[in-house]
């Protein structure tokens, strides 16, 4: 049976929409892209300016200060030294800078959206399906529209990374605020708190551990996306992996992959500890 139903032009619609945006607005985004790229380069230059050994010591001290765990500090020291030894120092700094900048943007965008979704039922109902959509759409797809707007390079990488990694911050900020027991919210109301006081004195402090878990997830997602974004010229460790794939050098690919693993474990352990400490302050012997 051959029923001839014409294809619904979803793809064509999206393409036309993006083309329209591209031809009318891309001069703005391209200009922004130049500015942001320059800023990123300054940050990376700043990081490379620090001698690697000093950098390693600073990170080790910082991880000890934040987590108070010997294991994490040792891991920082050994892990980063291994990276230095493998000759992956500068790609690692690139990756680290991209991840941190993308996370920063994700937080700037995600925290307010999460708060708004938690406090406003309509916004909640719109936000949640959009987040589901964003998280199930394959990450590669976000790379394509980034190019016409921002050109190949770091800014396009950050743009697609932010889109990919922002959902956990929004979701868990929202969840954390909604999880505050209604009796406590009622108590805050009974003492005449206005919505702002309620948010800053009760809801956000109580939601902090959950929000930290969201930020942790965001960092991990950002890291994985920054690697994928090597395909559109983000360089860094992902770039090394990408190079190794194209040249079929499994050894080099493994080394670069190892570098990513080290960075991921480091970021995860440090952030987890920070979140947990906050949590323990809140509920000491629970």
């Amino acid at each position: 049976m051959d029923v001839n139903i014409p294809k619904i032009p979803i793809g064509e619609g999206v393409e036309r929409g993006i083309e329209f945006l591209d031809s009318n607005f891309s001069f703005i985004t391209k200009a922004m892209s130049k500015g942001i790229e320059a800023a990123i380069d300054v940050i990376i230059a700043g990081m490379t300016f620090v001698p690697p050994v000093l950098f390693i010591l600073i990170v080790t001290a910082l991880s000890w200060y934040l987590t108070r765990k010997k294991g994490v500090a040792v891991l920082s020291f050994v892990g980063l030294f291994l990276i230095l030894n493998l000759g992956l120092w500068y790609p690692t700094l690139d990756t680290l800078a991209l991840v941190l900048i993308a996370t920063l943007f994700s937080m700037i965008i995600g925290l307010p959206l999460g708060i708004f979704a938690a406090l406003n039922q309509t916004s909640y109902k719109i936000t949640m399906p959009v987040l589901d959509f964003m998280q199930t759409m394959p990450a590669f797809v976000y790379l394509i529209p980034a190019i016409p707007f921002f050109g190949l390079g770091k800014v396009a990488a950050i743009f697609s990374t932010v889109i990919f990694s922002v959902p956990p911050v929004i979701r868990l900020t929202c969840l954390g605020i909604r999880q505050v027991p209604s009796e406590l919210v009622e108590a805050a109301d009974a003492f005449g708190s206005n919505p702002r006081q309620k948010l800053f004195k009760l809801q956000l402090p109580m939601a902090t551990p959950t929000i930290m878990a969201g930020i942790n997830q965001t960092v991990m997602l950002a890291l994985s996306m920054v690697v994928i974004a090597a395909m559109i010229g983000a360089k860094g460790l992902g770039g090394e992996v990408w190079k190794a794939i194209q040249r079929l050098q499994s050894g080099a690919g493994f080394e670069a992959g190892l570098g990513i693993v080290i960075i991921a474990i480091l970021l995860d352990r440090i952030l987890q500890q920070v979140g947990r400490q906050r949590h323990e302050e809140v509920s000491k012997d629970h």
């Binding site: 027991p181 009796e183 108590a187 109301d189 003492f191 005449g192 302050e281 509920s283």
Partner: peptide
Amino acid sequence: KLRQKKFGMVFQHFALFPH
């Protein structure tokens, strides 16, 4: 304002702020 001025409330399950 009225709640701040006139009312104090005590709850069954205390409703203290744990943080």
